[in-house]
Amino acid sequence: MIDLTTLTPLINGLSVLLISAGAFFFLAGTVGLLRLPDLHSRLHALTKADNLGLGLVVLGVLPRVPDVLYGIKLLLLWIMVLVAGATGAHLIAKRALRGEGEPR
């Protein structure tokens, strides 16, 4: 179990701040996905706002991990999402630009 008593209020406050900011960027990503006019612009919103939001959430959750290993794991997770997000966005953008290989 996670020991709540060892957390100082300062860390709690920082955590609240980071997670709130992260949630805001997630919100911005979704709003962008719904409002932006074309596919490539939506990809902008997806890669940037979303990855930043996830990074902030990861940092905010970091004080609550039960073990150092989990902390490293979370940071690895974020790096992986960054790389995967950027690569995926590139692939989708490329496919949309070339528009080949699809029967319809």
Binding site: K48, V83, L97
Partner: peptide, 26 residues
């Protein structure tokens, strides 16, 4: 470089032909 472009403000790497990148700018 390609992946960093996508995370920079306002740019997104959209295509790659040889050494020429097509960048989508917001």
């Amino acid at each position: 470089f390609l992946n960093s472009i996508s995370l920079l403000p306002g740019t997104l790497s959209a295509d790659l032909h040889g050494c020429v990148i097509t960048v989508h700018a917001l």
